[in-house]
Computed example of a mutant assay.
Amino acid sequence: MPRVNITDIARKAGVSKTAVSFAFNNPSRLSEATVQQILAIAEEMGYSPDPVARSMSTGRTGTIGLLLPQPLPEIVRNPYFPEFLEGIGEVCTHSGLSLMLVPPLKGSMRRAIVNAAVDGFLTLGLEESKATMVVLRQRGVPFVTVDSDPIEGVPAINVDDAGGACQAMQHVLALGHRQIAILAIRSGKQGHYREYVGTLGARMHGYLQALEEYGLTINGRSVRLLECASTEEGGMESFQTLWKSRHHPTAIIAMSDIIAIGVIKAAASAGQQVPRDLSVVGFDDITLASLIHPALTTVAQPSREKGEMATRELVKLIESNSQPIHQVLPTRLVERSSVCPPPKNED
């Protein structure tokens, strides 16, 4: 049986094909009675719009893409992501848009960008220097960067990562800690922290600023740096690595809450009590941070608001080609129960 099309509906309704298209895509152009008549006939005939044909006629897909720097399984294991996604979803719902998650396709960001049928992209944690940015510009659809170094002419939504990280490090230093380990999110830089960019670069800058105030720096002895996956397992493995060394840190500062939570769990398994034996600080203030025992001292960032703001900016670009903004949202230290002065026998 041949597929019903808009010509068939127009013939039966006694209207033009343009009127049928308006009924589905722009009903405000018709009277309410005409819209209802066309929709009723379409339902009676078993017609449903072809989304590909619709996008070809309107020039829009009604979908925005969230471009992810990591495979989906790794991204969704971080509880920060759903909170960020909630903010995006609020704006999509209000604007009548769908959201497509766009992770690397067969390991290629370029392939993912080229194949995503979207009206614009939100990018999460991408580096300007990467070929990804070149492909985004070539694709010709608007995009907004999140958690990346600002790019001239492109809207950017960030948080004060450097300020929050500085507060976290100042907090443990003020309590007397001098044996400190920083757990950085895996970067591909093999621990060459001077090469960090974006969120990692900003947070590392904040840590180093606070250390400098106390005459300290990362030296591989009293202040050490390890990279790990931003997962609970990453935090657990890092703790085990540190505890195999001769000198144990008295404080661990993690670049994400989920890493810090992994540290707390591994410490408990090893018979180390947080914070008596080891102080732990995170970053993000995910919901779980206040529920774990002991409750995690962390840096709060407005993850949901960040998602909302970035999506609103993208919608503006899609609809009206508005002027790009660079917005930095505040962070703050949240003191809970996972930090105290170092043990008396600190090395």
Rank of each mutant, 00 (worst) to 15 (best):
Q167H: 02
F121C: 05
D149T: 14
K189M: 14
T123P: 12
D147E: 15
I113M: 06
F84C: 05
G163R: 01
E90A: 12
A184C: 08
K130T: 15
E86D: 13
L97F: 13
S108H: 03
H171M: 07
K130H: 15
E86Q: 15
G176M: 02
G140V: 04
M100S: 10
C92V: 08
V102L: 09
A131V: 12
K106S: 14
G188M: 07
D160M: 00
I185C: 09
L99P: 10
D160T: 00
I180F: 05
S187P: 12
V91C: 07
T145K: 01
I185S: 10
E128I: 09
K130C: 10
A131Y: 10
A116E: 09
Q167K: 06
S129F: 12
H94L: 14
G163H: 03
S187W: 13
N115H: 10
R178D: 07
L183P: 07
K106P: 02
F143K: 06
K189Q: 15
M109L: 10
A162T: 00
G120W: 11
V114Q: 13
N115L: 07
T93Y: 14
A165Q: 00
V154K: 11
R110I: 13
T123H: 09
L85G: 04
R178I: 02
V114L: 13
A131K: 15
T123K: 10
F84G: 06
S95F: 04
L124E: 11
G176N: 02
L183N: 09
S187I: 08
E152C: 10
E152R: 14
G107F: 06
H177L: 07
V114R: 14
G87A: 05
V146A: 12
M100F: 05
V172Q: 04
A165D: 00
M169C: 00
G176I: 02
L173Q: 02
V141Q: 11
V159P: 01
H94T: 14
P82F: 04
Q138E: 15
H94F: 08
A156H: 05
L124D: 11
D147Q: 13
M133H: 12
D119P: 04
E152Y: 12
E90T: 14
Q170H: 06
L126C: 12
M133E: 06
V134M: 13
I182A: 01
A117W: 06
V118W: 06
Q167W: 02
V172Y: 02
H171N: 08
L85C: 05
L122M: 10
I185A: 12
V154D: 04
F121T: 09
M100N: 07
L136C: 12
G191K: 05
P82T: 03
S95G: 03
A156K: 01
D119F: 08
T93F: 14
V135D: 08
L175T: 04
V114Y: 03
A162K: 01
R178A: 06
L99F: 10
D119C: 08
V146M: 13
R178S: 10
G125M: 08
K189I: 03
G191I: 03
A117H: 11
D147F: 11
D161F: 02
A181N: 01
A168M: 02
A168K: 01
